[in-house]
Simulated assay, not measured.
Amino acid sequence: MVERKIGSRLMVYDRTCGGPWGLPGLTFSWRVGGVLYRALGRLDDWKGVASWPEALDWLLARSREERIAEIQFWGHGNWGCVLIDRVPLDVRALEPGHPWHERLVALREHLVPGGSALWWFRTCETFGTARGHAFARAWTRFFGCRAAGHTHVIGPWQSGLHSLGPGEEPHWPVEEGVPPEARSGRRHALWSGPRMPNTITCLHGRVPPGF
């Protein structure tokens, strides 16, 4: 039985993360991943961007003809935010008056209806700590759709993957992925690994049921 397509699956990645001295960096890995995912039929389109306005404008333009079923963002993150070129997108962008707010409101209207769309932040630690809980809660309620994100630093292994629907409360512990030394100033989460909770690999193209 052929699965009926209900909307486009799109990915944006941060194209500003090149390696030092002209060597390949994370941008190269994300670009290769986009090519692979599209070849496997997991994405309908993808684009490297250098700013959040560029990302949002591309998503809006790409969804004029067909609503969006899934948006993946591949880039850097921190507790409660995601970054392009080190510029954070966090809950402040959901408030009227923020320079990106109108774009986000418009993009909300381009998602498939009924709460079935998905934002997947394939970024380090965005859903970790109380800030990550607040981000997940605000994002899903603003867009009226599901969102997924990680509580750990991710790479080939991607741990602490959780998803939240609109109106739901985060079900994962606020301390998940947080090392004890974070209380004394550490600014990043634990690394992902096969024995960490809710772990997938970079080759997984779907959020597993129950995550």
Results as ranks from 00 to 15, higher is better:
D14L: 08
R31I: 14
I71P: 00
G97H: 05
R92T: 13
R15E: 11
G80I: 13
W74S: 04
L26D: 13
G7T: 11
E95I: 14
L10I: 12
R9N: 03
H98C: 06
V35D: 07
L40E: 06
G48L: 09
W100S: 07
W46F: 15
L10W: 04
E66T: 14
S8V: 10
G19I: 13
L23I: 12
Y37W: 14
L60I: 15
G33T: 15
G34T: 13
R4H: 11
P53I: 11
R92Y: 01
L26I: 15
L23H: 13
R42I: 06
R86L: 13
E102Q: 10
C81T: 11
L89P: 00
L60Y: 03
I68C: 02
K5Q: 13
D57T: 09
C81D: 07
I71K: 00
G33E: 13
R103T: 06
I71V: 15
A55M: 03
L40F: 08
P24E: 08
E65A: 13
A69H: 06
D44C: 02
D45F: 09
I6R: 14
A61F: 04
H98T: 09
L60F: 06
G48C: 08
H98P: 02
E102Y: 03
D45N: 12
Y37M: 15
T27E: 09
E54P: 07
R67P: 01
M11C: 12
G33A: 14
G77M: 02
R67A: 13
T27A: 14
A39L: 10
Y13D: 05
H98G: 04
F73D: 00
P88W: 02
R9L: 03
P24R: 12
L83Y: 06
E70Q: 09
K47A: 12
E102P: 00
R67K: 13
E70D: 05
W74N: 06
R86H: 08
L56I: 10
P88T: 04
Y13V: 12
A93V: 12
N78L: 11
T27F: 10
E65K: 12
W46E: 08
G22W: 10
D14F: 05
V82Q: 00
F73P: 01
E3A: 12
R38M: 10
L83D: 06
P20Y: 11
L89K: 01
A39F: 09
A61L: 06
S29W: 15
W30K: 08
G75R: 02
F28A: 15
E70M: 11
A39Y: 07
R64I: 14
D90K: 01
W52E: 02
L56F: 07
A93F: 08
G19N: 07
E66D: 05
W30I: 08
G19E: 05
R42C: 00
A39T: 13
